Amino acid sequence: MEETLKSILSELKVLNERHQEIMEGQNGLIGRIESIEKVQKKLVTNTKNINHNHEELIRAQHQNRIRIDHIEEVKNVISLGHNEIRELIKQTTMYMAGKLSLSDRLNMEIDLLNDQEQKGLLNKINEKIFLRNNKNAWNEHWDDNDF
């Protein structure tokens, strides 16, 4: 019986040692799990920061596209103005050299007048055309008169 008790005690010691080893292993695993959880929290935080930065980059990219479109519009307007100035210089040079036709010359001179002067000139032209047409109409039908 003594031997049985000794064997039981011996087995209990072995079990106790194994239990101690398991507890140490378990504590080591708990420490690793805690480290993994800390790293996981850092990863989640970093992921949130990355997502936030990504959203900011997308907004900045969108704003840059708008700015580029605006710059293209300004470039087109400047280009149109440049072409108009170039055309105006050509026309002025031809006008001064006397190489424009009479109608082109008149059109250019009319374009140089302000709005009020242009309206006044057009009224005078229309009056002359109206008088000429009425004069022709009277001359064509002079024999239709009863007098």
Rank of each mutant, 00 (worst) to 15 (best):
H82S: 15
E17P: 01
F130K: 15
M23A: 14
G25D: 14
G120C: 05
K41Q: 13
L113V: 03
L80V: 13
N16E: 08
I85L: 14
S79V: 08
N27Q: 12
L100D: 00
R32V: 06
W138F: 13
E34Y: 01
N53K: 11
N145H: 14
H52N: 13
N139H: 14
N83K: 10
I22P: 02
Q26D: 14
N107H: 04
W138I: 15
N49Q: 14
I78V: 14
N107V: 03
L122N: 07
N46G: 11
K75A: 08
N134G: 04
N145G: 13
I110Y: 02
E37W: 01
W138T: 15
Q26C: 10
R32M: 08
H70T: 15
F130R: 15
R105G: 07
H52G: 12
S35W: 04
R65C: 07
H70I: 13
L131Q: 12
T4G: 08
S7F: 06
Y95C: 00
S101I: 02
I50T: 10
H52S: 14
T93L: 11
E140T: 13
Q20F: 02
G31T: 05
E21R: 05
K41E: 15
N46R: 13
T92I: 09
N64D: 11
G25P: 03
T45Q: 05
L102H: 08
A137R: 09
E55C: 04
L113R: 05
H19V: 08
N133M: 04
L9N: 14
D144R: 02
N16W: 01
I22W: 05
K99G: 05
D104F: 00
L12R: 04
R132A: 12
T4K: 11
K135E: 13
S103I: 07
L102C: 06
N145V: 12
A137H: 11
M96P: 01
T93V: 11
D144P: 00
L80M: 14
L12H: 03
L102I: 11
R18M: 02
T93K: 15
L131Y: 05
N76C: 02
G31L: 04
E72M: 00
A137Q: 10
D143E: 15
N123C: 08
K42C: 06
N64Y: 11
